[in-house]
Design a protein around this nucleic acid. Structure first.
Lengths: 294, 294
DNA sequence: AGAGGTTACGGGCAGCGTAAGGATC
DNA sequence: GATCCTTACGCTGCCCGTAACCTCT
């Protein structure tokens, strides 16, 4: 019996699917089948009832699960306690909202690589609502997103807040500041994609005016910035992602009479036996953010 | 990481030697080296200090040992709890005194095979004092012997007592019964080998007479019986090993005025993490003996 | 038909034993 | 020189992925 089989067993029990476990463990689905078949042979018992749509534990399987969890936890603790950082390996799938990808991500990756040189990172940049779903399906291990993942076993920690500022290209001429909402509504606005929180916030703000404002949205931050630079319209963005453009005078901040809520990002991950590395990377990420002046 | 490596590590820590562990685990010594090298690689640390004559744990190694023990114990418990008896496998080395080999052993083997069909038994028939040593060196797992193994971690349980009776071939003519010690001393006595308890007891008994009795001893019970059958002398033996000869009239019991202490056999084994199978076989053996009228 | 698990099969790698090579006492 | 561990090397067997197959809904 080896740890890998137990880990495989554990994840099938948790996810209810051989296929999902194959993805989670970066293996083919037949490999997962074979591992479980091997385990069942070795123990001389059936672990799952495969007749239904979901793989469901048998009575004996539930007993095995309890042992498997304990063994995996001990194994992870063992690695964490005594292994040299260079020996800690694995693949961690980070899900990040694009704003994070533009600001903290490079530093996070660099520092994680320094601390755990043998860890592979797999990045998934998506909007928060999708990240949340992927986290639930265990398609990613840690997410930096807006909102919380409210399900048993998930940890949510405040990560970083961004204030949104209104910016515009010098090419465009604006009314006198602070710009009133009714004036703002006459200018095209470039913002985050539909279904994302900042998009919704801005739409709510403008809708109060009842006017039919032109709102361009893009799933790519660089496109949003590009459009703002080109003077297609104004945009509300975190200062952190356009420091260069502001310094170069390609964009300038302007005041609006109403304010937009901050973008509050959380970090979320699931606590699973044997997932100490995930927790370690999560801790490290929080520490990195905390160490910088906010 | 696999259970096998941890088990190997555990036994080296316990026995202080790669070589002894190789024997214990039925593997070659380089294989043991390779397993530990692999473990050390994986953890990125050194587990043993090999500079001295004995392999001694490093500081990190001691930490690992504690985890390894827990994991092995869980693994053994898991197997014991959920595995079907047919799936319980391994090799158990039984050390038995010859008297046991002649009486209980066939039934023990049969019953153990019934209960755990996948377990291999390896038998070692020797005198008790050697069995005790072998047990300490872990060359055997369970012993049925005279005396106790007094060392930490070893269990000793009463197994079975034999009363010795004096027997003689009808070919020989004896003095009137009960035979006095002085008369007995004139007849050649065939008995257990030197260094064994019954040999010592009989020698003590006869030595009181100060006479130079002829004492033949053999390490083979069948030879002793053969010699008694041939009328070479008298012998004191457990009734249980000569029931056939007594029934056939090839040997007959006779009374002696002095009595010889019973042969008291114990079962001894070492409690080690992950050695649940050894314990199970030990329990089974005791149950078998207890279930028969004594 | 499609989603999910199993079977069949070929290739690569890990783990084993034998034999030879150090290191320590 | 004896004892003990490591290195070198060839071999076997296990584990993996691809592809085809089976079975429920």
């Amino acid at each position: 019996m080896n740890i890998k089989s137990l880990e495989t067993f554990f994840w099938i029990a948790k996810l209810g699917s051989f296929r999902a476990t194959a993805k989670k463990l970066f293996a083919s689905q037949p490999t997962i089948s074979a591992r479980i078949a091997g385990l069942e042979d070795e123990l001389g018992i059936e672990l799952f009832d495969r007749s239904g749509r979901k793989a469901v534990l048998t009575a004996k399987g539930r007993q095995v699960l309890s042992y498997a969890e304990q063994i995996l936890q001990l194994h992870a603790d063992l690695l964490e306690t005594v292994a040299s950082p260079e020996a800690i390996q694995g693949t961690i799938r980070l899900g990040v909202a694009e704003t994070i990808a533009y600001t903290w991500l490079p530093e996070l990756i660099e520092r994680i690589n320094e601390t755990y040189p043998a860890i592979n990172l797999e990045l998934d940049v998506d909007i928060s609502i999708n990240l949340s779903e992927k986290l639930l399906k265990r398609e990613i291990d840690i997410a930096f997103l807006i909102g919380e993942v409210k399900q048993d076993g998930f940890f949510n920690m405040p990560f970083y807040s961004y204030s949104l500022i209104w910016v515009v290209s010098p090419k465009l001429t604006l009314p006198p500041e602070p710009v009133s909402l009714s004036e703002l509504a006459k200018i095209p606005i470039i913002t985050y994609p539909r279904m994302s929180e900042p998009h919704t916030n801005i739409r709510t703000l403008i809708n109060k005016m009842g006017s039919s404002t032109q709102i361009h949205s893009s799933s790519s931050l660089s496109t949003i910035i590009r459009m703002a630079l080109d003077g297609i319209g104004v945009s509300a963005l975190p200062k952190e992602i356009i420091t260069r453009e502001l310094a170069a005078g390609q964009l300038r901040e302007f005041k609006v009479e109403a304010s937009i809520p901050d973008l509050v990002f959380n970090m979320a991950y699931c606590a699973a036996p044997g997932a100490n590395v995930v927790r370690a990377v999560a801790d490290l990420s929080l520490k990195i953010v905390a160490s910088k002046p906010h």
